[in-house]
Design a protein around this nucleic acid. Sequence first.
DNA 1: AACTCCAGCGTTTTT
DNA 2: CGCTGGAGTT
Length: 808
Amino acid sequence: MTHPASPTEHRLLAHLNPEQLAAVTLPAEPALILAGAGSGKTRVLTTRIAWLLSTGQVSPGGLMAVTFTNKAAKEMITRLGAMLPFNVRGMWIGTFHGLCNRFLRAHWKLANLPQSFQILDSGDQLSAVKRIIKAMNLDEERFVPKQVTWFIAGSKEDGLRPKDIEIRDGQTQKLAEIYQAYEDQCQREGVVDFGELMLRTYELMRDHAALREHYQQRFRHILVDEFQDTNKLQYLWLKIFAGHGTDSPSAVLAVGDDDQSIYAFRGAQVGNMADFEREFRVRHLVKLERNYRSFGHILDAANALISHNSRRLGKELRTEAGPGEPIRVYEATSDFADAQWLVEEAQQLHRAGTARSEIAVLYRSNAQSRVIESALFNAGVPYRVYGGLRFFERAEIKHALAYLRLVENPNDDTSFLRVVNFPARGIGARSVEQLQDAARSSARSLYQSVGAVGGAAGSKLGGFAKLVDGLREATRGLTLREIIEQMLETSGLVTFYRTEKEGQDRIENLEELVNAAEAFVTQEGFGKDAVALPVDETAPGTIAAARPGEPEAPAPVDLQPDAETGEIMSPLAAFLTHASLEAGDNQAQAGQDAIQLMTVHAAKGLEFDCVFITGLEEGLFPHENAVTSVNSSGADGLEEERRLMYVAITRARQRLYLSFCQTRMLHGQTRYNVKSRFLEELPEGGLKWITPRQQGFGSGYAQQYQQAWQRGSGLSGVVGAGRNSGWQPPAAPPPAWAAPVPAAMSQSAAKSAGHGLRSGQSVFHNKFGEGVILTLEGKGEDARAQINFGRHGTKWLALAVAKLTPIE
DNA sequence: AACTCCAGCGTTTTT
DNA sequence: CGCTGGAGTT
């Protein structure tokens, strides 16, 4: 540092640990921060920004900070707002997609887009692709719409346009054609999907030297959060904004954790971290390994687990908080019993003073939540499930938004199709087909083709077009709130839901939409006046203030003005953009103190006092599909599962529970499980098995366990026999999971055919190790068994040949 | 246009 | 098992 530390600076930097301080005060050069879970990553990022600004090293307009989620962006803005004496909302801090949106709004002409282009969410994209496939007369069996959307999204994430697609066979040839048709359609309708936001921004920067140079000079500092989750295109995007390879590249600060990369399946490339280090010649690598979240046993478990992964950048979490409580491991006879136990345990925690919202139940896949939910429900315990439908994805909301989009742009065919006959107005599939034919043959939108359909169908369609036109006329000059209220009235949506049995909730959601719009207007800082204001009178040249060295005037985030004219889009269009870019919360009954249920993926970035990780069973976690697949990008599926487990473990502050079930109801049938290999990768010394010896109900177990719990110890159950050190003789005491399945639990317990084996029985095989019998067939010489050997997979063995030793 | 019925399917999913 | 979507029925 060449400048003396001012009091402001001193205050900013106080309370940082040495590594954090080093990261915050790095020189303006490429740097990589390896930020472990709970190591104060967000704090470092925000303090770095505040430090750069308050020391005058960069102006607010000369800095860009990129995140993946709206939540992370908002948190950064909020924290920064508290640290800095000026309005930070106009700064270029946002999600990749949000910033691309801003960029494209400012340069919509160059980007060849309408100014108020709308953004397709994944659902819209799917229906658009379906339309294409139908229009091209292709077989939906061969071109599964969902897979086609993956193909298109994946291609864009790799920066590939249809012409860049490598044609290997007829299938890829056709896929490229679909992709091309989809692009044409989007362009015609004036809509873009998420991938397009990124790709078009990148291409615009690549192809327009003046623009490129402007932004490259402007952003002297670029900070990237969750860098391990960037995909190929996002990395290219960063390189071009950073002026990588030019004379004066900007300083990129990449913050990430390769051990928390859990989105490879969606195109994220952990390898970007290593590439960044190499290509940017990173000289500053800071590791944040001091963890402020969890106790020692929890971190030991996380460290031990993740050490089983190869290809790591290398990092070990440590704490000064002491070892804390051991990790409790529970083996249940069934998923049902597991849920019962979990509810009981959670109730105890709550009674002992833990807020319910500080108790999280994590699982690998959504299907697992059902049994836990029903146990919680039956016990009357408030709970909240993350995931599921988000606010702006609800059907009634999407319908309402479709009307609003048609007001804004009647050529949006996706929206047209969604509501042309909703509420029903006698426009059937035949009429729509006629209309689509007419539109196709004249290369016009559905709305434009309404006149081309004759007869009764034509007049009904005309009626719908009039409705949309009328709505547009009637809402001209109204506030956003009034526009939406008018739309709800005119469209007949509210009337329709009033007659529906389950319509009340939907009407409430529609009312909530009005509130959301109201909140958006207030938050974005434009009121009634701005709405009525003719576009020409808006302050021009907003971007001119953004020259390097000058702070940018705080502008409403979603109202990016045209770079040349200062023209802004309408509040309605801005609100629609907001709705697509930020699908909203998916939390039901917020507010109430409730136990939190979510997938491990959804838990990333969160933390809780007490965490239950359930379903630690081979095939489920790690998931069987991930174990067998070394996916196309060369990433090892098992390693990603392990990182997922690492993320799960590191969510816990004080207490961590791990559980697995001998049997689990999956897809309507009982599965016999082998416990997850991840359990064996944890240090035994930090685990406490709390599975009671007596299994089943009514054995007095609950009482015993409760007493033990109150002593703060739990029951000391069977400790898992170590299997990490090579062979283990069949005679060795079996680990806890080998406890027999009670007869009542095993469907075919009676199927014993002289060999003394039954389904659910645990056995040992010299080559495959321990397994659980799934099914038995045949008699005598022909007798065979299907056995789940966990990591060795499920195998059929001939009992006359295979040497199986029953366990217990 | 609004029903019923049955086959098919069932990792994870920031934007 | 429980949900979705397509096909078939009224």
